[in-house]
């Protein structure tokens, strides 16, 4: 219960950083933090106390593993997060080449 709340606090920090900061790199950092918190929340939901990692070996029955389904889904989500970060960094670099600034207020003003 307290772990869930701490995880959601981390998510709130990320969303707040995404909403309030004017710097584009800070916005990417905020989105990254929110994504990490969400991934962690799913894995927390699938944890079974006393469970083992879901790899079959001798002496373990099917009841002794943690839930493998959130792990499989989050494995996909982590890789997609990397792709999103790379795309946002590329767009940020291109904006910096054109406007010489990371500040979104400046970029909006220079558009004319």
């Amino acid at each position: 219960m307290s772990l869930y709340i701490l995880c959601l606090v981390l998510f709130a920090i990320g969303i707040y950083c995404l909403l309030v900061k004017k710097n584009l790199v800070k916005k990417i950092v905020g989105l990254g933090i929110a994504e990490y918190a969400l991934n962690l929340f799913f894995i927390l939901l699938g944890y079974k106390s006393g469970g083992e990692a879901p790899i079959l070996s001798r002496g373990l029955t099917a009841n002794s593993f943690v839930d493998p389904l959130p792990q499989a889904l989050i494995l996909t989500s982590i890789v997609i997060g990397l792709a999103v970060t790379a795309l946002m960094a590329a767009i940020t670099l291109r904006l910096y080449e054109k406007y010489r600034t990371f500040d979104i207020n400046e970029i909006r003003r220079l558009k004319g």
């Binding site: 079974k48 006393g50 839930d67 389904l69």
Partner: peptide, 14 residues
């Protein structure tokens, strides 16, 4: 609650 997942599909996969 933490440490007690539903595992409706997960136990099937296991």
């Amino acid at each position: 609650s933490f440490g007690d997942p539903m595992m409706k599909i997960g136990s099937l996969y296991n």
